[in-house]
């Protein structure tokens, strides 16, 4: 096989693997910029994957599946908010707790409802997001370089993939060009100032968490009924944490978040491709190196060797009104 074809193949799979990361990292972006640490992203992804698979199976409609995924992820966001905003609990503890609840509940309910060891039933074709062939993809295929790129990387993805990339400029616009975004960023840096301006810190943070749940719902739905056709035990498999790493790697900014997710997705695709193959001179590279690379890179970044990653100043600190 031609090297270029291989490259196109890896690139296509990199895009597909980076979409759940992208939705989740953008979800985390909103809550962390508002000053709420969210290590419960993994759990939100998992519950929304489960909900969307169930709803899509029962209704046979992929969009209703997406809605269910979003609603359930927002519900989990509210729980996180209730613990960490209303009750001023520890945000990390709340995130850990919700990850556990999500991991357990999806399997317990899945087993009770479908009896397949935690899997949901196979979702019929109408309940899935299937690849869309963009106009002219087949005609373009013969054009050198651009043709395969258009036909195999840009075309042939499902609608959620395009929505994911659309969410990047939208997130940027919301965060940097709207009043809501300005206040959201302010509440993550200096909630006292926001409070003094007469704006409710709690309500603002709750709204940020709603956006987080909304985006995490897309991520779970993508896993369950776009990438596969059912919910499988623990199908998020640490993607929520990779997304968190991507968010930090991107220094809490929307466009770099996209690039970081693409990079981590590419590493994943490359690892899959390299499995069992050997590089001349070096020999076989253990696939585990690629699996660990996103985390290693993030730690190197956090060590301050690739610029400085400065988290939102009020992140992780519950806000107490002065009295």
């Amino acid at each position: 096989m031609d090297y270029f074809d291989i490259f196109i193949g890896i690139l296509g799979s990199a895009i597909r693997l980076s979409i759940p990361l992208l939705f989740t990292a953008l979800a985390g972006l909103f809550s962390e910029r508002a000053g709420i640490f969210d290590i419960g992203l993994e759990g939100k992804m998992l519950v929304s994957a489960f909900a969307s698979a169930c709803a899509a199976y029962w209704t046979g409609n992929a969009w209703l599946g997406l809605m269910a995924g979003i609603v359930v992820a927002i519900a989990f966001s509210f729980l996180h908010g209730f613990a960490s905003i209303t009750n001023r609990g520890n945000q990390i503890v709340s995130g850990v707790a919700l990850n556990f609840v999500a991991a357990g509940l999806t399997i317990v309910l899945g087993q009770a409802w479908f009896g397949q060891g935690g899997r949901t039933a196979q979702v019929p074709g109408s309940g899935r997001f299937t690849p869309i062939i963009l106009p002219g993809a087949d005609a373009m295929r013969e054009v050198p370089i651009l043709g395969p790129l258009y036909a195999n990387v840009i075309s042939g993805n499902n609608i959620l993939t395009y929505i994911a990339f659309l969410m990047v400029p939208i997130s940027w616009w919301v965060l940097y060009r709207t009043r809501f975004g300005l206040r959201l960023r302010a509440v993550g840096e200096n909630p006292g100032a926001v409070d003094t301006a007469g704006i409710s810190v709690s309500w603002l943070r709750y709204r940020a968490l709603i956006v987080t749940g909304f985006l995490a719902g897309f991520a779970g739905t993508y896993l369950a009924i776009a990438q596969s056709a059912a919910f499988i035990n623990n199908m998020s498999a640490g993607k929520g944490y990779i997304a968190l790493a991507a968010l930090i790697f991107a220094k809490w900014k929307p466009v770099p978040v996209m690039l970081a997710c693409l990079l981590f997705g590419f590493l994943d695709a490359f690892a899959n491709f390299m499995q069992g193959k050997s590089i001349p001179l070096i020999g076989e590279v253990p696939v585990q190196i690629f699996q660990a690379l996103p985390y290693i890179l993030t730690c190197v970044l956090l060590a301050g060797f690739i610029g400085i990653a400065r988290p939102p100043k009020a992140g992780g600190v519950p806000y107490t009104k002065e009295r």
């Binding site: 707790a97 609840v101 399997i107």
Partner: peptide
């Protein structure tokens, strides 16, 4: 009831005893 029920209980204990302790 699968064994994963423990994971749910564990999560709820962390939630109520930890995050919602106040």
């Amino acid at each position: 009831i699968t064994r994963d029920m423990i994971v749910v209980i564990q999560g709820l204990v962390i939630l109520f005893a930890g995050a919602l302790e106040y």
